[in-house]
Design a protein around this nucleic acid. Structure first.
Lengths: 250, 250
DNA sequence: GATTATCCATAACCTATGTTAAGTGAGCGA
DNA sequence: TCGCTCACTTAACATAGGTTATGGATAATC
């Protein structure tokens, strides 16, 4: 169930690109949902890479510890995201991963991932999932490189907003974001003090209202315009050409 | 020939993970080497994504144009690299791509990429290639986020050094790097003036000797120590467990 | 209910890097 | 040979963001 519940796989399935056997295969995978407490570590950098997970509930993140004692967060994982395919093809973890709040994950072994590659539609699905993650990463890199703090933060909030909206976790332009300003700073390469300053700025401009973990974007489109947000890398489903190709080359 | 000449595929092949049919398949792909002139554009952001390429000679790069007129370079491509799998699963290009100097590339259609996914070993190879690219991207993100200019540049040069060394393009710790300081700045999110300043700094410390495109690292290990370079994400070949799994699940 | 730990806001000050500008040398075409 | 352009260097100045510090909420623990 969990792997089929993943964004890309759901897209493929709804486009009729997955055969019944494909779906059965996904459903047959042994799933042991695991309850995670807040801050619980999934794995550490350089640890042996042997599994990946689908996040069912709660938020997670992957990060690298830096020599100066701080850390760089690479990505936040929301329900429906797959965590751990980053290390596919390596023996050791390139980054650590941990939960933010409590939640539930479904772990899979790399062995299972391999078996999945025996079915081309599923392999394509996994690959597309991985490329979507890479797109998010590239987008962050672009903003880290050349944009001012308020643009970075606006972009970050809008990205989270879109991702949450996609999984139905946004209501009345409001959502719950279980991140401290320190975590946000670690993701955006910014000091926590400056995150606070920047939030104040966005608040004064009426773009973001925040009360602890409750975020409200009174005018999401204004935010999007501020950063020229191009959401194709988040929202776009697999091209139909994909499904046609998949049906044509079984 | 060209796709088999790719780092990961060569690794898989030498570990006996590719069957004769796999290799034959790679060799059969229609290859039309194409000569590219300096600065020639391969494709533009938002263009239709229909092909990817293996770089045979010359350097390329992918980049995003920013609203303020500058650009952010996402990655430099050296001979043996695959350019364009980033957009797999999207209809449009997420980034532009162009050559830096003149060179030769081998284009493939996405159609061919799809057919390739019908053979699990090859799909695994492509996936592993993509994840290696993502690792480079993550590493850059980490350095963009929290490191000082001289550390970023040192890291960048050492990465290039390692990648060139792997393809035999380093001799006596020297190599040719056809990049202007402006391009380096666009990659590192740094003004060209500051790139120059930082080069001067590294020169004064005896870490980098540079004469236009000729770079010499008198003591590469010293550079690596400066940035605590962890080269596992570049050099590591596919884990042997991989090959075993591939042989076990045909 | 008191105490403590987190998280956040704001201020004062400092520094790395951006910006602008002027000058140098290499290459190159007329 | 002259003059142009391009890549680079260096300097002077400006500023975004880092750092340190203080105080005030709110939540957690006893």
């Amino acid at each position: 169930m969990a792997l089929l519940d993943t964004v890309v796989m759901r897209g493929l399935s709804s486009q009729g690109a997955l055969s019944n056997e494909d779906k059965a295969f996904l459903l047959e995978l042994e799933l042991n949902p695991r309850h995670m407490s807040a801050s619980e570590v999934l794995w550490l950098e350089n640890g042996h890479a042997d599994l990946f997970c689908v996040v069912k509930e709660g938020w997670g993140y992957s990060y690298r510890n830096l020599k100066n004692g701080s850390k760089q967060i690479l990505k936040f994982y929301l329900p429906g995201d797959i965590i751990g395919i980053r290390d596919f093809g390596f023996t050791r973890r390139l980054a650590s991963a941990a939960m933010i709040n409590e939640g539930v994950i479904y772990p899979f072994s790399y062995q299972q991932l391999f078996e999945l590659f025996g079915r081309s539609s599923l392999a394509v699905g996994i690959m597309a999932t991985a490329m979507r993650q890479q797109a998010l990463l590239s987008e962050r890199l672009v903003y880290l490189g050349k944009y001012a703090a308020h643009e970075q933060l606006a972009h970050f909030l809008y990205e989270i907003y879109l991702r949450l909206k996609r999984i139905g976790a946004v209501e009345d332009n409001s959502f719950l974001m279980p991140l401290t300003q320190e975590l946000i700073g670690d993701a955006l390469g910014m000091s926590p003090v400056h995150v606070s300053r920047t939030f104040s700025m966005l608040r004064e401009e009426g773009l973001v209202i925040r009360d602890r973990q409750h975020i409200k974007l009174p005018d999401p489109e204004a935010l999007a315009r501020l950063v020229e947000f191009n959401d194709s890398y988040i929202d776009e489903f697999l091209p139909h050409a994909f499904s046609e190709l998949l049906r044509a080359t079984p």
